[in-house]
């Protein structure tokens, strides 16, 4: 068993070019490692990450949608535990730096690529392994990871949506996944359409209360607790079948549909289907800005 630990943020000063490029494969960080409150085995998630390297050897950017549900199911954390950034430092830097370099090191086999700091120590949408866990947590519907699988076929969720507070509202996160998938006759949003819609949606929410629009069910603490305390058999996650997440209540369908309707109306309003490339910011949001509140100085 390899126990999960916390790695102090001062490790950043050790992440030099040699480590980030893989010339120095491992760092001696023993003095910066601390225990966490619960004993959690990371062997299952290490096995999953190794399998992804084998499966997607030459196309690491295709691995996210396969990986995210499996990382989430293999590394069973409460949100309180997952919000401790030091555990992601530990996993990315001390436990699986080879995965981080494989996923973000580019495909240049001749020269070594220096992986950016934020893939080791960045925010929830940036650090290589934490971002997979968090997207799965935000987009699972009870035990069902179908939307996670679908939305991570591209990197749009990370770049356009994950940082929005609205994604903490479970029906909104699921509605975004569905809308992203179904737009353009089921071809999905383009990157620039996604970016544009995310900005417009965020702005619209200053004059629309999501919580009044769609019921956001409370997460079932008992279901999460059971799930965290169940032994993980990661061998069941190695194939193509999706694993199952915590057995909490799915989000009511009418809540998801209510947010989808807002997204659809907004897409019409900003003529999203015709939008091909990102115009200047001032022009981009002109239509929705007329409805935005103004802060009084």
């Amino acid at each position: 068993m390899t126990p999960l630990k916390a790695l102090l943020p001062s490790v950043r000063s050790l992440l030099d070019d040699n480590f980030r490029s893989g010339q120095t494969p491992r760092l001696d960080v023993k003095s910066l490692i601390c225990d966490i409150d619960r004993q959690i085995d990371i062997d299952p998630v290490i096995a999953i990450l190794d399998e992804s390297i084998r499966r997607f050897e030459t196309s690491p950017d295709q691995s996210d949608s396969w990986l995210a549900p499996r990382v989430h199911a293999a590394l069973r954390l409460t949100r309180r535990e997952a919000a401790d950034k030091r555990i992601w430092h530990f996993i990315n830097i001390a436990a699986k730096p080879d995965f981080v370099r494989w996923r973000f090191g580019g495909d240049d086999t001749e020269s070594r690529v220096i992986v950016p700091y934020d893939r080791f120590m960045g925010e929830d949408s940036k650090n290589a392994i934490g971002r997979l866990w968090w997207v799965a947590e935000l987009t699972r519907n009870g035990p069902d990871y179908t939307e996670t699988l679908s939305v991570l076929r591209t990197s749009r969720f990370y770049t356009s949506w994950q940082a929005l507070d609205a994604m903490h509202h479970r029906p909104a996160a699921l509605a975004v996944c569905r809308f992203d998938r179904e737009f353009n006759d089921n071809k999905g949003l383009t990157d620039s359409q996604s970016q544009r819609l995310a900005k417009a949606f965020n702005l619209r929410l200053s004059t629309l209360c999501l919580d009044a629009l769609a019921i956001n069910p409370v997460v079932d603490a008992a279901a999460i607790d059971d799930w965290c305390n169940t032994t993980v058999d990661e061998t069941k996650f190695m194939g193509d079948d999706l694993p199952e997440g915590p057995d909490d209540e799915p989000v009511p369908e009418n809540s998801i549909k209510a947010v989808e309707a807002v997204l659809a109306a907004l897409a019409d309003e900003i003529d999203l289907a015709e939008f091909k490339r990102a115009p200047r910011r001032s022009r981009e949001l002109q239509e929705v800005q007329t409805e935005a509140p103004v802060a009084d100085e």
Partner: peptide, 10 residues
């Protein structure tokens, strides 16, 4: 609302 845990509980 809790930003670190991304929770928004009614």
């Amino acid at each position: 609302s809790c930003r670190p845990t991304n929770v928004r509980q009614p």
